[in-house]
């Protein structure tokens, strides 16, 4: 077969397209000038400003707590959902269940945002809770990220050697013991990378959060959004640099987890 030169050229162009904007933003985080489009010298000024920005730090802390909570919940629920989809061929309402698991992946976020807000408003009128803020945001994030965990777990279980489970059962292990000692360790990497995905999605979510956050809470994306609406901001460039570095690290860890089969 001839070398697909055209495809290679497009590949190079595609990577340039993907990375050039990010690299420029990262570079300009070291720019002395407040004018983001003029380079006036190297400086850590905006790094210092960001690290002393208490609103930003408080928002980041809240986002981190929400992400840890919702990713853990999503991992547990997604594990159950993925297991059911892969291993339980028929039960009452299985088709609906499959749709409910996958639909949040592609559902426009504005639709999910308004629907969850209306649910919480209704719940507050009926049972006086949950309070808007941490809890409502965490529930919203769990709901939409559990789909991603379920897909990863389901895919892992689909190409899984079932003879190991059968061997454990033949040797007298109960289904629970088999699950805990054989299945779970083998699919743990998939759960781990699903957790990381859920964590990242939560940390990054703006739209659903804006709908369900209530008046008191502000997550990091909400704060970033309120700033970037006004145009380019050097402190956001610094934040972008940090986010890209953290994401690259997380991805490398996740890659290691899933490759170690």
């Amino acid at each position: 077969m001839s070398k697909p030169r055209f495809a290679l050229a497009v590949l190079a162009f595609g990577y340039a397209f993907l990375y050039l904007p990010i690299v420029l933003v990262m570079g300009y985080s070291f720019n002395e000038s407040k004018l983001v489009t003029v380079w006036s010298g190297f400086s850590f000024k905006w790094w210092r400003a960001l690290l002393e920005n208490e609103d930003m730090l408080a928002a980041a802390w809240l986002s981190l707590q929400i992400a840890l909570t919702s990713a853990t919940l999503a991992a547990l629920l997604g594990l159950a959902a993925g297991y059911v989809l892969a291993r339980v061929p028929s039960f009452f309402g299985r088709t609906l269940f499959g749709s409910l698991v996958i639909a949040p992946m592609v559902m426009p976020e504005v639709v999910m945002g308004i629907s969850m807000l209306l649910l919480f408003v209704g719940a507050n009128q009926l049972i006086d809770g949950p309070p808007f803020g941490f809890l409502t945001i965490a529930i919203a994030h769990t709901t939409f990220s559990l789909a991603f965990v379920a897909i990863v777990v389901q895919a892992r279980l689909a190409d899984f050697d079932r003879s190991l489970e059968e061997a454990a059962m033949d040797l007298g292990a109960t289904p629970w013991v088999t699950f805990l000692t054989v299945t779970l360790p083998l699919i743990a990497p998939a759960i781990g990378s699903g957790w990381l995905l859920a964590f990242t999605l939560s940390l990054d979510d703006l739209i659903m959060t804006q709908f369900v956050a209530g008046a008191q809470s502000q997550t990091l994306p909400m704060l970033v959004y309120s700033k970037v609406r006004l145009g380019v901001d050097p402190q956001i460039n610094v934040l972008a640099t940090i986010v890209v570095c953290v994401a690259a690290t997380a991805l490398i860890i996740s890659g290691r987890l899933t490759r170690r089969r």
Binding site: G14, L18, V25, Y225, A240, A248
Partner: peptide, 21 residues
């Protein structure tokens, strides 16, 4: 991985990167 990496960074920040461009 090079294709997936941007997906793991903030969506909002990736869109923001185009404002300055």
């Amino acid at each position: 991985m090079l294709v997936v990496l941007p997906f793991w960074t903030s969506f909002l920040i990736r869109v923001y990167a185009w404002i300055g461009l």
